[in-house]
């Protein structure tokens, strides 16, 4: 199967799952945004994405996307490290035009995963998981209040912001790289995709960051609207 046997095939898997995840985080950020206009709307979305069959299927597909993306990342990295050989360069310099993110995608991805673990514990483990298990689940706003409230915000907010920053770097390279891997780039399109990647990563980052800061301020009673 060429999607596992060939280097380009493996990269295709990375790019397709990557683009899928980019779409997911984009939707996620947009759905969170709803909370800024009123928590009842947010609650409605949470209700909608409970333990319904379509939400469960979605969750499974999403999980598969994550798992494949992460497994392939480790697989590729191991292969790449062994291709590099046992001796490392004593001095190596990053050439002009090569982004820092592009050379540190695994580390950035790991930071995002760490953030995700906390995020899943705080939300998914309290909301969808108990519902599947037939127990009482938390409401969305309740979960938000716990995570960003006085008890936890000083852990939640920094970890989230760090995660978002890592995500920014990760998407800033991953987004255009996916299009390059899919063969849709050329001399004209490489700069265009790179530009699009920057915008996309920045918008997603800003949405998440504003939302996290807003929740923190709101659930600590500093602002109330």
């Amino acid at each position: 199967m060429w999607l596992t046997n060939s280097s380009v095939g493996r990269k295709i898997v990375m790019s397709v799952t990557g683009l899928f995840l980019v779409l997911f985080v984009t939707f996620h950020a947009l759905m969170n945004l709803v909370a800024l206009f009123g928590f009842k709307y947010y609650e409605a979305i949470c209700e909608f994405l409970g333990a319904n069959w379509y939400a469960l299927v979605g969750t499974l597909v999403l999980a598969a996307g994550f798992v494949i993306h992460i497994c392939y990342a480790f697989w590729l990295t191991l292969q790449n490290r062994s291709a590099r050989g046992d001796d490392r360069y004593a001095v190596s310099a990053r050439p002009k035009g090569v982004s820092w993110a592009s050379q540190n995608m695994l580390v950035l991805g790991l930071i995002v995963v760490c953030f995700m673990v906390l995020h899943l514990i705080q939300f998914w483990a309290n909301m969808q998981l108990p519902e599947i298990a037939g127990k009482t689940a938390m409401k969305g706003v309740q979960a938000l209040a716990t995570a960003f409230g006085p008890q936890w915000w000083y852990i939640t907010l920094p970890v989230y912001l760090l995660g978002f920053a890592a995500l920014w770097f990760h998407i800033s390279h991953g987004f255009w790289s996916a299009f390059q891997t899919l063969g849709t780039a050329g001399d004209k399109w490489i700069p265009r995709w790179k530009c699009a990647a920057m915008w996309w990563a920045t918008i997603v980052f800003l949405l998440f960051a504003v939302e996290a800061v807003y929740f923190t301020l709101h659930f600590n009673g500093i602002i109330n609207c």
């Binding site: 280097s7 380009v8 493996r10 990269k11 590729l76 292969q79 790449n80 062994s82 291709a83 590099r84 990053r94 050439p95 035009g97 090569v98 982004s99 592009s102 050379q103 995608m105 390279h173 255009w176 790289s177 390059q180 891997t181």
Partner: peptide
Amino acid sequence: GFGNCTNTGA
């Protein structure tokens, strides 16, 4: 045994 391209552009 060459590695996989990750589009760093180096």
